[in-house]
Design a protein around this nucleic acid. Structure first.
Length: 574
RNA sequence: CGGGGUGUAGCGCAGCCUGGUAGCGCAACUGCUUUGGGAGCAGUGGGUCGGGAGUUCGAAUCUCUCCACCCCGACCA
């Protein structure tokens, strides 16, 4: 490709309403343009990258035996009514009517359609397992689209759905998909982690998320420094550092604590160790009353874990202040487990604290040296806190570290959830109809592009891993339009690259070098060759990798080997 | 949906308070000079001031209304 014939529409200034770095850089590099809220056009250079992602995904899915299909974006309401999700899904499902006033939606996902295909197409266990996938446009009417294509309303997803007669077979395909996903992310050349995950609203049992690591990521993931353990912090089991409770050593006392409502204020006021203070949070109960959740002062409540407890309203909602006052008689800030007349759940770590400080259930008063068993009932112990860096790994090996990630892939075992509601059955060896077991496997194709940028950028722009780069190599001739020597050399090199199948961009625009370099750094071309009259006279060309600090001069005679090296390492489909 | 904010040239902004017929930088176009990290000079084009209604001799500016977009919260690949 010659730059003069390409649409390079780079922006020098950062568009003001793009908040995160990937969105800013995608706009500045001319990859995407916004059409409406959460809806983007992909411009030529952006689409080149998107296609690279798709190609790798497609190749690895095919290799893993999945079969590509293409399902409609517009889906009839009947299917969604059959699965029950027409009512469940809420406003995120974009609904529309045709000229006959029949209801449709734009698919946010395709379980219904694929289940319908399956029940029409597949009759016998002999045809199983089977795994269908597509790379297709989805629409989810997000309340607040933001971060460019990271959370857009229209987006491209690879979604796969597998079908099985029994759990062993489902597990086999699930494992195969896990491996395929690992291959895919390896080939992208991105730093990533797979983690065990909450299976969320889609339901089912086994579930893993694939996260591209980036400091700006929205999810926190916990992993062991010694073992393979890795989980979303939403899910990671919190293990106390102590194995047994500290002995009670002093008598309980009441102290006055006027104006001290937060654990920080309380601890600071009398130099209590925050870890000796217990905080008591009051949440709505499922029956309309209240429940108490007790945590150590330095720990954070995990809303997902808490919502799973018996009697706790799901999703978790902390009770409002007035309701607490009216039922308990005192304000938040002075509530504690001692003498509290509420169902009380106590976090594992909080249950191991002795001589603790807590609210005295009377305004402006706290207890010190309170102890479980002695001053109140033995606690009902549960895991309701977020794990922290340094916590013991739940598998017993090593300590937890926390990293941030962007969720770009998710694999689920759905079980029979959809096959039952959609009546998707197959005949087994005995001619008996069985509800098929399903697995589903998603990769956010458009989000991968944004995540790759979040992970790989600097103050000058993007740097693409070789496998995703729109161009592998850029040739920057200095004074292409003035110097016949440079022009000739550049054209020769350009022809040579094309002959060797190297995706090359020749920047033949009549620009000053600084402008050329800035553009190429911005759009993230990983390799750059500069040709100048000066260099050619010395029989040299200049090379610089996008992430290199300095340039190297290489003899022109070594050009063929150099190009050989350039294409050899990655990219070749394995 | 609740709370906050913004709409003026392709992008970034000023002008609005105090009404008088729209400006700056970048980008684009032309010419000359320049050519190793976003050049200089000279010139050119481009705006229903988000839409509508109102007040006024006169509205980007004041009032009402509608719309769009952005940010903070509950959702997700």
């Amino acid at each position: 490709m010659k730059a003069s014939r390409f649409h390079l529409a780079t922006l020098k200034e950062t568009p003001v309403d793009a908040e995160i770095i990937s969105h800013q850089l995608m706009l500045r590099a001319g990859m995407i343009r916004r059409l409406a809220s959460g809806i983007y056009s992909w411009m030529p250079i952006g689409l080149m990258i998107l296609r690279k992602v798709e190609k790798i995904v497609r190749e690895e899915m095919n290799k893993a035996g999945a079969l590509e299909v293409l399902m409609p974006a517009v889906q009839p309401a009947e299917l969604w009514q059959e699965s029950g999700r027409w009512d469940q899904f809420g406003p995120e499902l974009l609904r529309l009517k045709d000229r006959h006033q029949r209801d449709y939606c734009i698919g946010p996902t395709h379980e219904e359609v694929i289940a319908d295909i399956f029940r029409r197409e597949v009759k016998s266990y002999k045809q199983l397992p089977i795994n269908f996938y597509q790379i297709q446009t989805k629409f989810r009417d997000e309340i607040r689209p933001r971060f460019g294509v990271m959370r857009s309303r229209e987006f491209i997803m690879k979604d796969a759905y597998s079908f099985h007669l029994n759990q062993e077979c489902l597990q086999q395909t699930y494992d195969l998909m896990y491996q395929a996903y690992s291959n895919i992310f390896d080939r992208f050349g991105l730093a990533y982690r797979s983690v065990t995950a909450d299976s969320g609203t889609i339901g089912g049992s086994g579930s893993h998320e694939f996260h591209v690591l980036a400091d700006s990521g929205e999810d926190a993931i916990a992993f062991s420094d010694l073992s393979q353990y890795a989980a979303n912090v939403e899910m990671a089991e919190a293990i106390p550092h102590e194995s047994r409770r500290a002995q009670a050593s002093k008598p309980i006392e009441t102290i006055d604590t006027p104006g001290l409502y937060t654990i920080e204020d309380l601890a600071a006021s009398a130099s209590f160790d925050v870890k000796k203070c217990l905080k008591t949070l009051i949440a709505d109960a499922a029956d309309g009353g209240l429940v108490a959740l007790v945590l150590r002062g330095d720990h954070e409540l995990n809303a997902i874990k808490a919502a799973r407890l018996e009697g706790v309203a799901s999703p978790l909602k902390l009770a409002d202040r007035e309701k607490i006052k009216s039922i308990l008689g005192n304000d938040i800030g002075s509530i504690g487990p001692v003498g509290l007349d509420l169902k009380t759940w106590v976090d594992r770590s909080a249950a191991l604290v002795g001589d603790f400080v807590c609210g005295a259930n009377s305004d402006d008063q706290h207890y010190i040296n309170a102890n479980w068993g002695r001053d109140c009932d033995e606690p009902a112990v549960v895991d309701i806190r977020n794990v922290e860096e340094g916590d013991p790994s739940p598998d017993g090996n090593g300590k937890l570290k926390i990293l941030r990630g962007i969720e770009v892939g998710h694999i689920f075992q759905l079980g029979q959830k959809y096959s039952e509601s959609m009546q998707a059955t197959v005949l087994d060896e005995n001619g008996k109809a069985n509800f098929t077991l399903m697995g589903c496997y998603g990769i956010g194709i458009t989000r991968v592009v944004a995540a790759a940028i979040e992970q790989n950028n600097d103050e000058r722009g993007i740097f693409w891993p070789d496998a995703l780069a729109p161009f592998r190599l850029v040739i920057c001739p200095i004074n292409y339009h003035k110097s016949e020597t440079v022009k000739k050399q550049a054209e020769q090199l350009y022809a040579l690259c094309i002959e060797r199948g190297i995706e090359v961009l020749l920047d033949d625009r009549p620009l000053r070098p600084g402008v050329m370099f800035s553009d190429m750094d911005l759009i993230g071309v990983p390799h750059r060759i500069v040709l100048s009259e000066r260099g050619i006279d010395a029989k040299q060309f200049e090379y610089k990798g996008r992430r290199d600090d300095s340039v190297q001069d290489i003899a022109l005679t070594e050009l063929p080997e150099f190009l050989e090296k350039l294409i050899s390492p990655a990219c070749a489909p394995n």
